[in-house]
Design a protein around this nucleic acid. Structure first.
Lengths: 276, 276
DNA sequence: GAGCTGGTTTGATATATGTCAAAATACGCG
DNA sequence: CGCGTATTTTGACATATATCAAACCAGCTC
């Protein structure tokens, strides 16, 4: 049953989101291409990163405007996607890292027998695809949870540029290291926390990341199902649902299916320390 | 109780293994320093990496001998350590990555409440410390499981050199990516495997890594306790012990406390796919 | 609005793993 | 070698989470 939905086609990452890209082309891109002069077009495309309000999150901040131009040049490959699109699949050849401009993704690894493990939920400003650098083949799937846009950053160009721009090189090392630290945190969660602690940790982490992006840290909409949360936390969906209900009964959070309000952050945090 | 042994002192990584280093200085290093001419000394130290029989594992292989010399220069910081030594502790300032020349380590993250999670067992030829790059502070502890030697690779020098040596830069990206993939595998294990599957996966992984180093893949000594294995696999030590006993009763492995013999690799592997 | 469909909640029960305890075995030291 | 300590094994029992099942609910199509 689970098997069926996996890898129904062998499209590469590029082809997978081709549909969406062409629909995108009909709007913004097309306007640029047809209405304006080539020179203006290039200038507009190039101004991309330097005007992107997320750039602190995905790219180094201390570049000269000249160096910034060079990075801009990399990111002409902007692509739209919609819910359910694969950005890449496990086994796909590696070309690019992806900076999420808007929207959100989940990444998952598959076991031969069909079991799947969600390894992360990524949101705006985060970079994904670094798993593929080691073997030049993607080691997991990245699937859109809602529609949005990514910048494709061709890795061989990033690599070459990072030799000349020390701060870019350092930035790449840092985001990879950050990913390693993040993964260690999840191991701690999966290896030594109980169900409700896991959910509390998940909610708090989500809340922090929203706050970092200027959204309310206490009221938000989850983009993922109970099943996906369960997979991420190493629990079954029923257990996740029960934990939500329990937190609600305790007055710690308010749950309306996927609309969450955190009412008592202190108690949520406390739940992480002593397992009542 | 667990608290007591943690962070009894605030020694930096350098100081932590200071004792062992000075005892080392009394032997090999001292001989070099006192008996030989400076020029010869430097030559000997510099020949380190190029003659190290592990270099495929920790450093790129396609360097010219000239470039190799430059990497050698980095690795003068060879240090001995013995069982129980901390190579670094969570919170220590970051200076170096460490290449394990001989011996083995475990890395662990600590939760405020004292719970600890072993995040990996590292052996000869592996590089550790990459968690610290993102914040310039180590995010986990690295503790020796037996005596051996490491090369300290000062990261600011590695970073600078990697700008001039593309293959070194690429290598660093790759080993960090490899770590990310490895961690994802552990998440899969912790999030969706049952106790015996986890142990089977652990044993097979251990076996493969020994084989890659020229040791017997079917007969080996574990360097870690049941408790440490349990922490790594997200299980209690009793569960680990029972799983060992069960495998032994099935004739899949032979267990004499920490001496393990894998008798039926196929069955071990099968255990990973269908949970009997 | 009726009827589907897929996701969510809740309940009853099963089971894998944890907990507690004791015996067995290995290990270090005088 | 024998003693004391730490680790491992094994057993009996407890419990957190999984499983199975049904009811509920939201969103979508017709």
């Amino acid at each position: 049953m689970i098997y069926v939905k996996i890898r129904v086609s062998k499209f590469s990452a590029l082809e997978t989101i081709g549909k969406t890209r062409s629909s995108f082309a009909n709007s913004h891109m097309a306007k640029l291409l047809k209405v304006q002069q080539p020179v203006t077009l290039i200038a507009q495309l190039r101004s991309h990163c330097s005007t992107c309000n997320l750039r602190e999150l995905c790219m180094p901040v201390d570049l000269s405007s000249e160096d910034m131009q060079r990075i801009n040049a990399l990111t002409q490959l902007k692509r739209g996607y919609s819910r359910g699109d694969y950005l890449y699949r496990s086994g796909d050849a590696f070309h690019s890292l992806y900076a999420i401009r808007s929207g959100s993704f989940k990444t998952q690894v598959l076991h031969e027998d069909g079991r799947e493990q969600v390894t992360g939920f990524q949101m705006t400003g985060e970079i994904i695809g670094m798993d593929a650098i080691s073997t030049d083949v993607h080691a997991c799937d990245a699937i859109a949870m809602e529609s949005g846009e990514v910048c494709a950053l061709p890795f061989n160009q990033l690599e070459a540029m990072s030799r000349e721009l020390p701060s870019l090189q350092r930035h790449l090392y840092k985001i990879m290291s950050r990913e390693i630290v993040r993964d260690q945190g999840i191991m701690l969660l999966l290896g030594s926390m109980r169900a409700e602690e896991r959910l509390a940790a998940f909610l708090l982490n989500f809340s922090q990341r929203l706050a970092a992006r200027g959204f309310s840290p206490t009221q938000f909409q989850l983009r993922m199902s109970r099943q996906e949360i369960g997979s991420y936390l190493g629990l079954k969906l029923e257990t996740v649902s029960r934990a939500f209900s329990h937190f609600q009964n305790e007055g710690i959070i308010s749950v309306k299916v996927r609309s969450i309000e955190l009412l008592d952050l202190a108690k949520l945090q406390a739940g992480l320390k002593c397992q009542n």
